[in-house]
Every structure is written in structure tokens, then in C-alpha cells.
Design a protein around this nucleic acid. Structure first.
Lengths: 352, 352
DNA sequence: CTGAAAGCGCTAACAG
DNA sequence: CTGTTAGCGCTTTCAG
């Protein structure tokens, strides 16, 4: 490996502009107390020489690393990549996070971390020591891992916890789950549905509960029974099939179903169709997440969009404008929205 | 922003082990000329203190940055992310590239670069100056951009050109396009098809030509006409519809179609179905790329898998085992494979 | 085989 | 407002 050196350094700029290193440094970092004329002269040299500061050197001298680290669960992420089922969490994360970082001259790098490992702390600690990120974004199931949040706050590294409402250090950010469930339920009620089924997600994820809470709250507010048509699921296709069968066996059967994710909605669609029901004629369907698959079903699925990109974008902003006072602020909620496609309609007037 | 310092540095390890900094450095970098006993003693201290070298500091003192940079086209990547059509190029890139990097203690970061910009060179130059990656992976349409390859080789940064067969500096790596087209064609011929249609991709991409070349070669080798059933396309759904209509209007019509990507195959499926043809009964279909959408059609699409992950994995290996002699080696070809699903079958015996 | 010295490119702290 | 002086943590010379 050839030993490479910086082509043009702060020294070159300083001597070219006939000023001290410090002045150049001040200009680079946009610090005050530099006379405009001076600043212009230095900037001219910078442009002329095509100078770009070395992040490594900046970091070395105790400044920032200009790196924001996003952390995802290793096992789940790799499994999703291998399965190639069209899940695009990582892509949306990058879309929101990378672009927002770029706006501020930062860079987002992302790491896979083993939750199950008993040495999460060491693993993460090593990455942090090596990279020295200026901020970290945690995603479930890491967001509420005390080993991780503890380590981060001990090291005084600002961090955001996505999908967490717990108080404590770091910014808690949620993705509108409860509100979205209300939105979906209200929409169906508005269409004329009264018996609305709900397939819950795995209790391993807090958002499963929030989504159900929203459903229950909305049903209750309309004077509808929030319990009779609520069935458990675990986000898998198989659990969606089971829940749908259970729901359709109820007399009178529901005229609409909200599934807590797209896979289970897909299962509901297939199951209902197999039973001779027409979607949305006989049964309306709304799914959560709005991953690409919602576009490939027939009919296309009306879905609640999980605002992944917007959430990461917000997380980056929180991290970079960080003022310690807002640290313990109440959770930030990024609302999701309902994307109306072809799987929802008014119930038949002759519905049982 | 609190000023953060490395918690445990090489100094701590040195004093803990009672040796000089150099010795620790040698152990870290696995250099020879360290007595085993010494090495063990130092390693023990490292483990005990949980020491991890700072990449910034390593890079500063003229060593490696342990960073491999993958470059993708900004516009196209962002458009794909926004469209949420299930394209998973980035995910597969990460799957192959990140994991392979991790094996060697490297990290993959990825950048979006504007091709159309007239200052690609400056843009990329800045990123490189800032990050100082030890290697770069170029993807189309950057792979054959002389501004980029020139800059990289001037800076003596090892790089790989994915989807390029041009000679010159850097490793050229292809993804088996021609061979895969042969594979698909041969498979259809083996099934009994004689009139096989081909929908080509946009000429902006070299791989479009390679895929067509494979089709032509295979057809010719079987004594079949490689021209009559070959239609142009541009990878878009709309162009797929047009090409399919053109193909199905030919008398006698083809009994099978190979589309140069999944979107056009999807278009072919929809178009054929709309004309009352049954896939695969009346028409067999093979697509290229094997993106997630192939799993969501009815029937599911038989497809040629574009080996994205394997290719990036290979690129990283080439970059890290780099010996200058192999620099101009002939292009490396990572073969693709045929994933057989439900859109292919033998032609009807009574086919026209 | 191991140690001591000299930076890498940049910024913090302090002078002027 | 600008310049000077120390390092940051590590690796490279070059001595022992």
C-alpha cells in the first residue's frame, strides 16, 4: 500500500494566502473574529488550491469527526437482505439520514450490531473508539437496551432512540404508530365500516402495542367494540393467515381488517381471496409500513406509511443542533400518513 | 459539543504492559519481529484495557484509513429510494461489500456522486481528500468515466470498476451478463422453445449489449434466428409494453420472451395476460436481475439473478489483496445464475 | 528484536 | 482580530 499523504494541506493554503494556520482554520470552521477581507483572501486560496480538510486530522485535534453512526440489528438486517422480499428499511434510513447529514457536511455510516450477543457493549464500544462518531442513531431493538444507552451517555455521545418513548438520556423518537392506527380506523369508520378487525404485531416490539392502542382508542371513540375483532399476530405471513381465518370465522364477520404490517396484510388478502371474498368489495384491507410490496398486490394495498426517512432526517437534526437542555425532552413523534390505494371501499349495503 | 478524547490509547497499553509505544503498535499491526512472549503480554494488556486503535490517528500517521468507498449515481439512487419499487441494488451492495469489508477489519462507506455534473472530479476529489479511503468501488455509469478513473489512478488509490470491461487502471468486474443470457436462452431451448423473443435494455448501459450478445450467440448456436424476435427497450415498464406488443404481433408469435430487466418482464407479463395469453402456458417469460418484484407477480417470474452481492464481495477482495501486477488483469467475471420459478414451461405442442 | 525521536494535519489555548 | 505554541494518537524513521 503506497503511503499516501494529503495533497494540499492547511499549510499550503496558509502560505499561499500569507497568513497563519490558525486563520485558515478559522475560515474553514466559519468562526467569528475574522475580518471579511481576510476571510475572502483565505477562501480564495482554498478554492484555488482545491483544499479540503482531512477529517482524520480534524478529529485528531479534538474536533468533530463529522460522522453520524446509525445502528441496526445485524441478524434481522442480513436476513432481510438475503430474503429479498422488498423490505426497504435500510434504503429509507439512508434516504432520510444520509441526505440530511450531507446537508450539514456530515456523513452517515451504518453498523450492524448483535443484540443477542452478551458483549454488545464491547462490540459497540470498539466501533465507537475506532470511529469516534459525533452522534449515534439507535433503532429497535437497540433503542431501549440499557447497556447501549448507558455506554453512550457515559461517553457523552449524543444519541437518538428511534421507536422508543422511554425517558432518560438521548432523544426518543417515535414514528406516529398510535396516531396512524387512529387514522386508519377513522378512515374505515368514515367509509361506513362498523366491524373492523385488527391483527396485532409481535409483542417484542413496542410499536405493536402502540398500533393496537390507536385502534382501540379510535374504535372506542366511535362507540365500537375494540376487543371482539382484535387478534394477535407476530408480523409473519403465517400468523397473518391464522389471524385472518380467526377473524373471518366470527359471526358477523368484519367488513374490514387492519394488519399491523404489510406481510400480514398480504396474508389477509390471500386468505380472504381464497375464501371467495373480494377485496375491497367484501372486505377492506389496510396495512402498516407501506413497503414496496403494497404496490405489487392485486388490488394494491391501502397502507399507513411508516415515515422512516423523515424520522431519520429528524434524528440527524436533533443530534446536530443538540443543546443539552433538550436532552430529556418528551419524545418527538414523526407522524405517518395514510396512502389510499385500492384495497379499501365502503362496505356493501347488504353486508351481513 | 463536548470535547471527547480517546478513553484508552496506545500509551495506556504501553505503560500497562511495560513496553514502548512501538511494540504495541507492532502488535496491533501484526508486524513480524516481535517475540511471541512479548506479543502475548501486549495482547493481554490490550484485551484487559479494551483498547481499540483510533482510525483517525492511524490514518494521520500515514497508515491506512480502513475505509473502502463505494460510489453510486446520485440521481438514480435517490429516485429508486423514493419510488419504493423494491429495487434492492444498494442493499445487495451492502450485503456483499460491507460484510466482506468487515471480515478484513475494514469499513464500507458509500457516496452518491452526480454523473451529469461537470465537476464530478472536484466533488469526488473532495470526498477522497476528506475521507482518504484505501480503495474505491465504481458502479455504472461511473465505472468508465475517464475523469474519475484518471483521478483515482493519479492519486494511486486502488479501485474496482463494476460493469466495465475496459482495460486500463483498476480492476474491471462484470456480472456475468453475456453468460447469463446464454443460460436463459439455452434453458428455453431445452424446454422446447424455438421462437424466443428478446427485449433489449437501454444502450446507455454496456450490459444491455452484453445481454443481447449472449442471446444472439445462444440462438445462433442452436441454429435459430437471433434477429427476428429481438426488440429494443430502455428498461422502463412502458418500453416493455411496447416491445411485447411488437413481439406478439409477429406471425408466428414467439412462445417465450426474455426481458433485459424485471420491470420490462413485468410489463410483458401484464401485456400478454391482457391479450388473453396464459403465462407460462402460452408464453414463457424470463427476466433479468431477480429483484424482489419477481416474487410478487402471478406467476412468479423465472429470472436471471444479477450477482450484486457476490460482485461487491469480489471487488473488496481484489482491492485488499491488491498487488500492482494484477492491476491490468483481464476483467473478472462473476457469473449469474438462473432462478427457476413459475413463468417458464414447455411450449404447447399445438403452438402455432 | 526493541526503543527513542520526529512528525502526520489540524485545532485549542493562549498571547499579542 | 491574528499569530504562536502545544499537543491529539499513532506510525514511521532510525538507533540501540
Amino acid at each position: 500500500m503506497a503511503r499516501r499523504r494529503q495533497a494540499v494541506t492547511i499549510k499550503h493554503v496558509a502560505s499561499d494566502a500569507g497568513v497563519s494556520l490558525q486563520t485558515v482554520s478559522r475560515v474553514i470552521n466559519n468562526e467569528p473574529n475574522v475580518r471579511p477581507a481576510m476571510k475572502q483572501r483565505v477562501q480564495a486560496s482554498i478554492d484555488k488550491l482545491g483544499y479540503v480538510p482531512s477529517i482524520a486530522a480534524q478529529r485528531m485535534s479534538g474536533s468533530r469527526s463529522y460522522l453520524i453512526m446509525a445502528i441496526n440489528d445485524r441478524e434481522r438486517t442480513i436476513a432481510d437482505w438475503r430474503a429479498r422480499q422488498g423490505g426497504d428499511w435500510i434504503d429509507q434510513m439512508l434516504l432520510g439520514g444520509m441526505l440530511k447529514c450531507a446537508e450539514y457536511g456530515y456523513r452517515m455510516i451504518f453498523e450492524l450490531v448483535d443484540t443477542h450477543s452478551d458483549h454488545v457493549e464491547r462490540e459497540l464500544g470498539a466501533t465507537i473508539a475506532a470511529l469516534q462518531p459525533d452522534g449515534v442513531i439507535l433503532t429497535p431493538p437497540h433503542s431501549d437496551n440499557p447497556l447501549i444507552t448507558g455506554m453512550l451517555s457515559d461517553n457523552k455521545i449524543p444519541f437518538a432512540r428511534i421507536g422508543s418513548i422511554a425517558s432518560g438520556p438521548g432523544f426518543a423518537i417515535t414514528m406516529g404508530d398510535e396516531g396512524s392506527a387512529v387514522l386508519a380506523t377513522d378512515y374505515l369508520v368514515g367509509l361506513g365500516h362498523r366491524r373492523i378487525g385488527f391483527i396485532a404485531g409481535s409483542d417484542e416490539y413496542s410499536l405493536s402495542g402502540w398500533r393496537r392502542d390507536g385502534y382501540v382508542r379510535a374504535m372506542t371513540s366511535h362507540g365500537l367494540d375494540p376487543v371482539a375483532y382484535c387478534k394477535p399476530g407476530d408480523f409473519s405471513y403465517a400468523s397473518g393467515v391464522a389471524a385472518t381465518n380467526a377473524l373471518l370465522a366470527i359471526q358477523p364477520r368484519p367488513t374490514a381488517i387492519i394488519a399491523s404490517n404489510d406481510q400480514m396484510a398480504l396474508a389477509a388478502l390471500d386468505t380472504a381471496t381464497a375464501q371467495g371474498l373480494v377485496v375491497p368489495g367484501d372486505l377492506s384491507l389496510i396495512s402498516f409500513d407501506n413497503t414496496p410490496v403494497t404496490r405489487f398486490t392485486n388490488p394494491q394495498l391501502t397502507a399507513i406509511d411508516q415515515p422512516i426517512a423523515a424520522t431519520f432526517s429528524r434524528a440527524v437534526e436533533l443530534l446536530l443542533n443538540r443543546d443539552d437542555s433538550a436532552d430529556a425532552a418528551s419524545p418527538v413523534d414523526v407522524p405517518g400518513e395514510l396512502v389510499i390505494r385500492a384495497s379499501t371501499a365502503a362496505p356493501r349495503s347488504d353486508a351481513p
